[in-house]
Nucleic acid binder design. Structure first.
Lengths: 159, 159
DNA sequence: TTAAATTATTTCAAACATAAAATATCTAAG
DNA sequence: CTTAGATATTTTATGTTTGAAATAATTTAA
């Protein structure tokens, strides 16, 4: 027994299994993400980041601040600026200045953006269902509950 | 009961739970990935993609082909080219032409690259352990087994 | 009130990433 | 042997992403 081991909690001594779990988690999400990216591109000619932004905005009909989008999507502020710029150019999203705070701009989907997203969302939902078909509804619920801890651990923090 | 539902297997009818699972999976891996990215940057001044490449090469002392790296990391060929270019410039990686096939180049870590990686890997392992500390060793093993299906579903396919 | 600190967003440079096209090499059919 | 097709990699154009710095507006405190 090494000097390291005696200092460790037996439950946390063997860190190999957690590293393996992390690698599996990462590979699973990359595989699914890659497949969804590919299907969104070939079917709707849309990139995954753009779809993600539209999905976030669709859930909030009153719009979101740039900083809320950044936090929700877990990407940097500058990234959101560029994405919204391009989506605005394409008429899918608009910035409005209805606040008393002139630093902020409320971003929301245009009517074209909503229609566009609804069509894509139906396919997206079906694809996710297909790609996760290894899991029954019950298993999905259990697993989702297991993973709940993470989002909440960091969510709310700026990055 | 709608016309849709009668056509579906009862086990797969309710797709909401799978979509929720996907979103949780994605948020969990993004949160962990973001935290690791930040720590690698501030502690070792290295980017996550560079760490990932070095980790892949460390496992293969005899080196890997560009296409193997691309497949293993699930990123495009062009992306690997750029990463290896930059790592080569910094003396952490080298291309060798020891094959009878002049199209291919075998990439491997330099001695400096191996030393550099070993130092980072120790911290990385500890960080993963910390970030996944919600899971006991047993839970990690069970969960990793559950996620095993995915990687193998797509792995081996070119992207 | 005014200056300092804070907050929200954008800009910038560099790196990362994709997909398609180009290049170079190898393999195999004839 | 020649060449058509396949394979491995790089190049190119475009888009995504980060982190730091700059800008602009608001809030706080002296």
């Amino acid at each position: 027994m090494t000097s390291q081991e005696v200092l460790m909690d037996p439950e946390t001594t063997d860190d190999k299994s957690r590293v393996r779990l992390w690698l599996r988690l990462l590979r699973a999400s990359r595989a699914i993400e890659g497949e969804l990216r590919e299907r969104l591109r070939t079917t709707f000619n849309v990139t995954l980041p753009r779809f993600d932004v539209m999905a976030a905005l669709y859930r909030e009909p009153d719009g979101m601040l740039m900083s809320q989008l950044s936090k929700y999507l877990m990407v940097s502020n500058g990234n959101v600026t560029g994405l919204i710029d391009r989506l605005t150019t394409d008429g899918l999203v608009q910035r409005t200045l209805r606040d008393g705070d002139r630093r902020t701009s409320v971003v929301l989907l245009t009517e074209a953006g909503r229609e566009n997203f609804e069509i894509m969302a139906a396919s997206h939902r079906a694809w996710v269902n297909e790609l996760l078909s290894h899991f029954t509804t019950k298993e999905s619920e259990v697993l989702a509950e297991t993973l709940k801890v993470f989002a909440s651990d960091w969510e709310g923090e700026a990055r």
